[in-house]
Design a binder for these strands. Structure first.
Lengths: 231, 231
DNA sequence: GGAAATCTTAATGAATCGTTAAAAACAAAT
DNA sequence: ATTTGTTTTTAACGATTCATTAAGATTTCC
């Protein structure tokens, strides 16, 4: 099997070369472009498996490049390298369709780990295509495709789109922390005072639905997010 | 298992050689660089497990070298050797991401002890890439992601963010000194009279939580920091 | 003994969250 | 186009959680 091909777009020459060497040693074919425009040209002339883009670059920044890449290819994994851990940047990245992002400086082993994780995720996702849409939550049963929440033999509750997405997300993180920010970005596509308030309203609605089973509850972790507890 | 690899950067030739020999005898592979620039080159060409850097060196001092190292690798443990025990230096070191520091002259056995303690601390966590968030503390169990402290079958105690961060940090330094300044910089992001007082308040809170197990205690080491003792 | 460091409790004010209700936006059907 | 019903957002207010500061007591170090 031939090596996976990486497009690395990074304007800092030193850092770029070190990173390229490191990835080459880790058995990837690396093409190193020095700015966004060069990156776009390389992208169009080759067939890469994954893109690693610096955010801040002359001529064309990483986000803008990502948008252009997405016009050609909706699936290719993109990892952003952001110098600062600005929330602005992270949000923007997710909107452009980032698969992951890393704050510089970072441990190169973490990058390697993320690359492999993403490549694996994509390939297995391709095999199975469909994602999970049925969840057991205590004595409740959620079918997120039909947007129905069932309890015993009772008539199922019909969920609105947002209720459904939120409960599904809580269920995929069952018994674990679902970070508030993540839900806002993925479901509300924005993270501000009002979307956050809106989310609280939906949490209240879900709690009302779920209160028939006393074993099930949604608890808040102050400043962090919510946790759906169910045996 | 192969020996752990140490990058030792020390400009004093006599001291450097003695230290290198001592560490080699203690079953480490030691690369000895004579100044900061040489150290950086060695760092980029090899794969070390830990760095020991003298602070005062010609061409490139230890702090500057540490910053460069951190650009490539955010996790690798760094120990500083400082001639004077200036608080300025210690703070600067921690801000650059030091794991520990030693005042010259020092007992080489102390250095050895610290190296092993740090490697142990890092290795268990680093295997999994993502950081550790579960800790056993005597009969207590801390889940720092969920911010809860459990004791036997009792209802877990919910920890506030600061309580959680502080206890987590104490736990990673379990049975060892957690330097006061380090906690202040990493958790409070500042080191002054008030943050220090605030930390004391949190130590008091944690002691209250932990007093159910008489085998567990947080002791103060006057002028140095705290030590979480647990079997 | 005296200065510096630490311990502990309590008070304050800010940020976050919970809940209800009303307003606005949206969609489907008349 | 207007009506009707659903969904989502905004508003308002109370409740809870949280970090900091103050202040006095106690301990440690020289």
């Amino acid at each position: 099997m031939s090596n996976k091909k990486i497009l690395l777009v990074e304007d800092d020459p030193n850092f770029g070369i070190v990173l390229k060497d490191y990835l080459t040693l880790s058995k990837f074919d690396v093409t190193h472009a020095k700015d966004g425009l060069e990156g776009l040209i390389e992208f169009k002339n080759n067939d890469f498996d994954i893109c690693i883009l610096d955010v801040m670059m002359p001529r064309k920044d990483g986000f803008s490049l990502a948008e252009d890449i997405r016009k050609t290819n909706k699936e290719i994994p993109i990892i952003f390298l952001t110098a600062k851990s600005m929330k602005e940047d992270i949000l923007k990245g997710y909107k452009v369709g980032a698969d992951d992002y890393l704050n510089k400086p970072f441990d190169s082993e973490v990058l390697l780990y993320k690359i492999n994780a993403i490549l694996q995720r994509k390939s297995s996702a391709m095999d199975a295509i469909e994602e999970q849409f049925e969840f057991q939550i205590g004595r409740f049963f959620l079918n997120s495709k039909l947007r129905q929440l069932s309890f015993d033999k009772q008539e199922p509750i019909k969920l609105s789109p947002k209720e459904n997405k939120l409960l599904k997300m809580l269920a995929t993180y069952k018994n674990d922390l679902m970070p508030r920010e993540l839900a806002l970005i993925k479901i509300w596509r924005d993270d501000n005072y009002f979307t956050s308030r809106s989310m609280d309203v939906y949490i209240a609605k879900l709690r009302k639905y779920l209160k028939e089973d006393s074993e099930v509850e949604i608890i808040n972790i102050h400043g962090e997010g919510f946790r759906l507890i169910a045996k």
